[in-house]
């Protein structure tokens, strides 16, 4: 089995989870209502836990230990999409991102539950059950606010249009697509993207939101190969602040 290909897959998944987990945690104490504060905080904890499990598999494949991987790399060594590092902005953007990202994540783990790479398949079987709560949460709010008032609909519509090119960056093809597909590790980004578009269409159709024609959108690629926005490094600096002040600190 091709370990370089598997590592590339694990890194991009884990980094997405870590970075979006951190962004979700920024809602702690600031949620628009208490339930949402708790929901985003819980999902942050889930995502960071998922990243730890993925970094642990990477460690078993010979990479450094999870804390070193998570806290000591620079922005250009991260493989998350630019989508996950964008600032939270207002709640409408965070909600749209949560919906678009978690839909892809749930489908990705669903596919990976069949992976020929056993450690990832085992983890995926576990994670996909947990993600049902994330997608349920996202779908409930998108359906409610996507059909509520003129203000909620127009805010979500604006965020949806802004977010979609970035969201398509989740499916940036890697150098290893055919290896992963041939070795039955993963069906590939293209297959995932098609499933994701169908699911997004299905939920948005139940609202008053409008999806633009997919053909008019240009995916924002680059994150997978370390090309990030100016927003990632400050996030990493904040996340690793304690470690940099005192590398022996326990918390």
């Amino acid at each position: 089995m091709n370990h370089e290909a598997i590592k590339e897959l694990l890194y991009k998944m884990a980094d997405d989870q870590l970075i979006l987990g951190h962004r979700n945690s920024e809602w702690t104490g600031f949620g628009p209502l208490l339930e949402e504060d708790i929901a985003f905080s819980s999902m942050a904890q889930d995502k960071i836990g998922h990243s730890l499990a993925l970094y642990t598999i990477l460690h078993e494949l010979g990479e450094q230990d999870p804390d070193t991987i998570a806290f000591t790399r620079n922005a250009d060594q991260f493989h998350n999409t630019v989508f996950t590092e964008l600032p939270n902005a207002e709640y409408d953007f965070s909600l749209i991102r949560h919906f678009l990202y978690d839909t892809s994540e749930a489908l990705r783990f669903e596919i990976l539950s069949q992976s020929s790479f056993e450690p990832l398949a085992q983890l995926a079987i576990k994670v996909r059950g947990e993600l049902r709560y994330h997608t349920m949460h996202a779908n409930t709010w998108i359906k409610q606010l996507g059909s509520a008032t003129e203000e909620s609909i127009s805010k979500l519509q604006k965020s949806l249009e802004y977010a979609l090119p970035y969201a398509l960056g989740l499916f940036e093809p890697s150098l290893y697509e055919s290896k992963l597909i041939n070795e039955k590790v993963f069906e590939g980004e293209k297959a995932l993207e098609e499933k994701w578009k169908k699911k997004v269409e299905e939920v948005i159709a139940q609202t008053q939101l409008q999806l633009p024609n997919w053909k008019t959108l240009t995916p924002h690629y680059g994150g997978r190969i370390g090309k990030h926005s100016e927003h990632l490094q400050p996030l990493l600096d904040e996340m690793s602040e304690v470690l940099r002040i005192d590398p022996t600190a326990e918390w």
Partner: peptide
């Protein structure tokens, strides 16, 4: 169901 997320990951409110 008020919230599928609760005070710990395994509880709903």
């Amino acid at each position: 169901l008020k919230n599928p997320f609760g005070p710990t990951l395994c509880r709903a409110i």
